[in-house]
Computed example of a mutant assay.
Amino acid sequence: MLDETGQADLADHAPETGHSQTPEAGHYHDPATGHSRPPRREFKARGSFTERCPGCNLPVLNCLCPYRVNAESEARVWLITHPLEHLKPTNTGRLIRDVLPDTEVFTWYRTVPDERLLALLDDPRFAPFVIFPDDQPDYADRVVDMAVVGEVKASGRTPVFILLDGTWRQARRIFRKSPYLDRLPVLPLATTRLTRYRLRKPASQAHLCTAEVAAELLRQSGDEHAAQVLDDYFDAFNVSYDASRRYEKLEQPTAAMRRLLACQGE
């Protein structure tokens, strides 16, 4: 949920079905739907020719796989991800899924919502909250605070944090153009935390990336261990990727990396 970069919107149309395409034909695999979809233009971002680890997608120079740790949490995270985010190796939504195995990832298309997402939204076991700022009056009646999450837990239901994974412009579009979200409570993240993300320039230091948002929500809702593991994994990702951009090999694990390694032995 960072920056304001404007790009051709692949999310206006649903993924094509009925035939498969190969990467050589210029298509990419949608990890959420399983469909193959052609990008509007060839993706050649800086670092696109870097040799990457197939496990963590980081440059092999500083692979993140040795520090991967699973954690349990009472709350769950569902990501509604803009298609362009799947193309970005700097996307932090994948870190949440690495740490929390129950994380769900859905690709957003404006015209055809994901049927599995719609089914889960109707599942009485879950109490979903859309994480979004409370800065507009037209949905003020839907805004709740973290105390409601505690009430949901007390009732025996599982709270779900729905994160809109994309730039701020894309996230606002997802929020406004997804009628199935209109009936859900809106939970703004109240925090004084400033971003530690080094890989994209935010419009404001108060704009946290997706993994940071998830960690703060987990911490505030009582899943402190999961929050710490995700925070440490995010820091390991941040440092490793930043060093790889400078073609610098990390010779010693950071404090966050050492905590993750310690968790693996527990």
Rank of each mutant, 00 (worst) to 15 (best):
E4D: 05
T5S: 10
G6A: 15
L10T: 02
H13S: 10
S20D: 13
A25R: 12
H27D: 10
S36D: 15
P38E: 00
K44I: 14
R46M: 13
S48H: 15
F49K: 15
T50Y: 07
E51I: 09
N57Y: 08
L58F: 03
V60F: 02
P66C: 06
Y67W: 12
E72V: 08
L79P: 03
P83W: 02
N91I: 01
G93T: 00
G93N: 05
L95D: 01
D98G: 02
V105P: 01
W108D: 03
V112P: 02
A119Q: 15
L120G: 05
L121C: 10
Q136L: 15
D141P: 11
R142H: 11
V148I: 14
V152W: 14
V152H: 07
L163Q: 03
G166Q: 04
W168R: 09
W168N: 03
R169D: 10
R172S: 14
I174W: 02
R176T: 13
S178K: 09
P185E: 09
V186F: 02
T191K: 12
R193K: 15
R196T: 01
A203Q: 14
A203V: 10
L208V: 06
C209D: 06
V213W: 04
L218M: 09
R219D: 14
S221M: 11
D223Y: 07
E224A: 14
A226M: 10
A226G: 11
Y233V: 05
F237K: 04
S240E: 01
D242P: 01
S244T: 00
Y247S: 02
K249H: 06
K249N: 08
A255K: 15
A256P: 09
R258V: 08
L260P: 13
C263A: 15
